[in-house]
Amino acid sequence: MLPVLIKFVHSRWYWYLVVAAGLALESVALFYQYILGEPPCVLCIQARFWTLSGVLFGLFGLSSERPVAQGVAHVGLVAALAVLIDRSRISVLVERGQYEGQCGMDAGFPAWFALDAWWPQVFEVQTMCGYTPNFIFGLSMGEGLFYGAIMLLVVAVGALVLRAASGLRGVR
């Protein structure tokens, strides 16, 4: 089983799966916004940004056969997922009334990278933080994103470890 997993994390299919998972998350967010009428808060927008970052790291990994570039893509993916977990954790704390920080209407993008101005259909904050809509299995959207991002992080870290271990042994 281990050789099959090692072969998979070295394949383009792994990166296709990373990109597909990220696009699926973005699609769900946009479905909730435009079809179900649930406006995004600043934490939702930040989660969208880190999800998009994961997609871009996936595309980078997909576009290169070089082990160093794919290692960079893996580390970037793990970092993006770690921040996504943090944003979704704060979202859960806010909806439970356990967060004392501030959630405003500013997405927090710097002026030189103003995604909310360049692409407002996706990155414009439209409401204050407070609750996230019901999702699946009795979870709120924030909880679903939190648990889902944890699972994705476990997979990405596992893939990174397999890739590194197989690289040390010269197995591919």
Rank of each mutant, 00 (worst) to 15 (best):
Met1Ser: 14
Pro3Met: 01
Pro3Val: 10
Val4Met: 04
Ile6His: 01
Ile6Ala: 10
Ile6Asp: 08
Lys7Ser: 12
Lys7His: 06
Lys7Gln: 07
Lys7Cys: 01
Phe8Asn: 03
Ser11Ile: 08
Arg12Pro: 01
Arg12Cys: 00
Arg12Asn: 01
Trp13His: 14
Leu17Val: 03
Val19Ile: 15
Ala20Glu: 01
Ala21Thr: 05
Gly22Lys: 01
Gly22Leu: 05
Ala24Ser: 13
Ala24His: 08
Leu25Asn: 09
Leu25His: 06
Val28Arg: 06
Ala29Trp: 01
Ala29Ser: 14
Leu30Trp: 11
Leu30Tyr: 13
Tyr32Gly: 12
Gln33Cys: 09
Gln33Ile: 08
Ile35Thr: 13
Ile35Ala: 14
Ile35Glu: 13
Leu36Tyr: 13
Leu36Gly: 04
Gly37Ala: 02
Gly37Pro: 04
Pro39Cys: 09
Pro40Cys: 02
Cys41His: 12
Cys41Ala: 14
Cys44Ala: 11
Ile45Asn: 15
Gln46Lys: 14
Ala47Ile: 10
Arg48Gln: 15
Trp50Ala: 04
Ser53Lys: 07
Gly58Tyr: 00
Leu59Trp: 08
Leu59Cys: 05
Phe60Ala: 10
Gly61Gln: 07
Leu62Asp: 01
Leu62Gly: 03
Ser63Trp: 07
Glu65Trp: 14
Glu65Gln: 11
Arg66Pro: 07
Arg66Met: 11
Pro67Ile: 07
Pro67His: 09
Pro67Met: 06
Pro67Gln: 04
Ala69Gly: 03
Gly71Val: 03
His74Cys: 01
His74Arg: 10
Val75Arg: 04
Val75Phe: 09
Gly76Leu: 00
Gly76Tyr: 08
Leu77Cys: 00
Leu77Ala: 01
Leu77Glu: 00
Leu77Asp: 00
Val78Met: 08
Ala80Gly: 06
Leu81Ile: 06
Leu81Asn: 05
Leu81Phe: 11
Leu81Trp: 11
Leu81Ser: 02
Ala82Val: 08
Ala82Lys: 02
Ile85Leu: 09
Ile85Val: 10
Asp86Glu: 12
Asp86Phe: 12
Arg87Lys: 15
Ser91Lys: 05
Val92His: 10
Val92Gly: 03
Val92Ile: 02
Val94Arg: 03
Glu95Thr: 11
Glu95Ser: 04
Arg96Met: 12
Arg96Glu: 15
Gly97Thr: 13
Gln98Pro: 01
Glu100Phe: 12
Glu100Lys: 15
Gln102Val: 13
Gly104Met: 07
Met105Cys: 14
Asp106Cys: 12
Phe109Ala: 09
Ala111Gln: 10
Ala111Glu: 15
Ala114Lys: 10
Trp118His: 02
Pro120Met: 08
Gln121Ser: 15
Gln121Met: 15
Val122Cys: 13
Glu124Asp: 07
Met128Gly: 03
Cys129Gln: 03
Ile136Asp: 03
Phe137Cys: 06
Leu139His: 05
Gly144Glu: 04
Leu145Cys: 10
Phe146Met: 15
Gly148Thr: 02
Ile150Trp: 14
Ile150Cys: 10
Met151Thr: 14
Met151Ser: 15
Met151Gly: 15
Leu152His: 09
Leu152Ser: 10
Leu153Gly: 03
Val154Cys: 14
Val155Met: 07
Ala156Glu: 03
Ala156Tyr: 00
Arg163Ser: 08
Ala164Ile: 02
Ala165Thr: 07
Ala165Pro: 06
Ala165Gly: 08
Ala165Tyr: 07
Ser166Gly: 05
Gly167Tyr: 03
Gly167Ser: 09
Gly167Ala: 08
Arg169His: 09
Gly170His: 04
Arg172His: 13
